[in-house]
Amino acid sequence: MSDFLSAPYVLEYTYTRSTGPVIARFLESLRYGVLEGVKTADGRVLCPPLEYDEAGTATTGEFVQLRPAGTVKSWTWVPKPRKGHPLDRPFAFALIQIDGTDNAMVHLVDAEKPKRMKTGMRVRVRWAEERNGTIRDIACFEPVLPYLPGPVHLQYDVRPGQHYTAFLKGLEEGKLIGGCDPQSGKVYVPPRAADPVTGDPTSEYVEVADTGVLTTFTIIRIPFEGQKLKPPYCFGAIVLDGADMPIYHLISGVPYDQIRMGMRVKAKWKPREQWETSLENILYFEPTGEPDAPFESYEEHL
C-alpha cells in the first residue's frame, strides 16, 4: 500500500458543436470528397476556411474549390501514436499549405518513416473511406512520390536447346554428360552448339566423372535476396575428370576454412528419388580425401 492515495477518473463527454456558416460548408464539402477554401477581404484564400482572418476582418463567404494536395511547411514525427491519434502507426503531424491558399492546415502525414518527411515535400489528401462531415474525413495526407509502380507480368515458355537437354537428361539419370567436337577433342560440360575453337557443334556426347579438381573458389559471406543457403558457404570452379573446362558448384562437407585450390572433390548427389532434370541433383561437391592436385596440373583452367 502506498502512502499516497490514487484512483482513476475519466472526464468524458461528447459536445454538440455548432459550426456556423463557413465551417459547416467546408465540412459538408469534405463529406463529398471536395476540398474548399474561403476568400478573405484582401483576396487571400484560407483553408481550412474561417469566418474572419487573423486580423479579425470578416472573410467574404466566397468559396473556391482546391486541389486536394499541398506542401508541408513544418512537421513533427510521432514515433509512438497515442490513443486519440487517428493513425495507430508512426506518423507525422504537419502544417500543410494547400495549393492555392495562403495559410496552412494541421493534419497528419502517413509517411511510414521519418526519413520520408521533409519540409517542402508534396503531399496529397487521402480521403477516409467513410465520411461524415468532420476534419477526419481527410484520413490523413500522404507523400506525393516522384515515382509510380510499373508492374510487368509476362508469361514465357523456356525450352532448353538440344545440347543442354542432353546434359539435363543425363542429370536425370545421375550422369554428367559432356560434348566434344572430334576436330578439337576438348570435352565441354554441358555440350555446346559450337566448339569455341572450331565453330562446330560438340555433338559427340561423353560421360564425364563426378569427381574432379577444385581449381578456384570463393567463400560467400554475404546474405542476399533469393539466396538458398546460409552464409558462409563455398562456391567454386571444378574441372571434372574427363572434362576440359570447369563447371561451377557449391563445395561443402568440410569446414570452409579448410578448402584449398587443387583439392580433389566428388559430387554429393541428392537421394535418387529426388532427382529431377537439374544440376541441383548434385547438392554440392565434397573432398575425396585424395592428395591435392599440383598447381601446374590445373593452372591452365584458371
Binding site: 525450352r159 536447346g161 537437354t165 555446346r192 552448339a193 557443334p201
Partner: peptide, 15 residues
C-alpha cells in the same frame, strides 16, 4: 522451333 536455344539457331545459319 522445339530443340534449339540461341546458340543452336546461330551456329547453323552463320556457318
Amino acid at each position: 522451333s522445339h530443340a534449339t536455344d540461341e546458340a543452336e539457331l546461330v551456329q547453323p545459319v552463320t556457318s
